[in-house]
């Protein structure tokens, strides 16, 4: 093979690889990710579970031991990988969410929880479509605020399942036991 032919072949291969890489990257970047953020007030006022979050009730009861769960707000946002979206939460809190990657049914993201202008928690995690991330702890009104975050990729063949399977709850670790938390 002559030098000229080798150079031409190399150029063609590089072009093909670059095109394939760019398409793969663009495909990952253009994936839509849908977030649902439920702000739930948890308290011990014996009022049961809000019917609007009945599907989440068993999950909440398994994880926490409050007697009242009331939905304060439910927000849904769609965004693309690499684009941040924000949620206004009760008590002047703001949640910023930026999906980073979508691999299979796992979505990598960064979450930043603000109390006013001050970031109080920053985390990077990967969450499966069937999983729920709950951020709790802040006091709100007469109870605690629990932020339930679920994520989905619109257009995927499966749907998000909220109904949990009931088994024995496993607590892994608590550095310090908060008031009503198990």
């Amino acid at each position: 093979m002559s030098y000229r032919n080798t150079g031409t072949l190399f150029t063609v291969l590089v072009f093909l690889f670059a095109t394939a890489g760019a398409r793969a990257w663009a495909g990952s970047q253009s994936k839509l990710v849908a977030f649902t953020v439920d702000s739930v007030l948890a308290a011990d006022t014996n009022k049961g579970i809000d019917v609007r979050i009945a599907s989440m009730g068993a999950r909440l009861r398994k994880v926490f031991s409050y007697t009242t769960y009331r939905l304060i707000s439910r927000q849904r946002r769609r965004t693309q990988c690499g684009r941040m979206t924000g949620f206004d939460l009760p008590g002047g809190r703001i949640l910023h969410v930026e999906p980073r990657t979508v691999v299979g049914d796992t979505i990598g993201m960064e979450l930043v929880l603000f109390q006013g202008p001050r970031p109080v928690m920053t985390t990077e995690l990967r969450l499966k479509r069937h999983a729920v991330l709950m951020i709790g702890g802040p006091h709100y009104e007469q109870g605690m605020l629990i932020i339930a975050i679920t994520v989905d990729t619109p257009g995927s063949h499966d749907v998000l399942v909220h109904e949990p399977r009931i088994h024995q709850h496993q607590r892994l670790h608590a550095v310090s036991t908060p008031g009503q938390a198990p």
Partner: peptide, 23 residues
């Protein structure tokens, strides 16, 4: 990363739930 050192982390795999407790 949290401001509060009293952070706690739970996982309830049977419920597909993870909890970050930041009082």
């Amino acid at each position: 990363e949290v401001d509060n050192p009293a952070v706690a982390l739970w996982n309830a795999p049977e419920n597909d739930t993870t909890v970050i407790w930041v009082p």
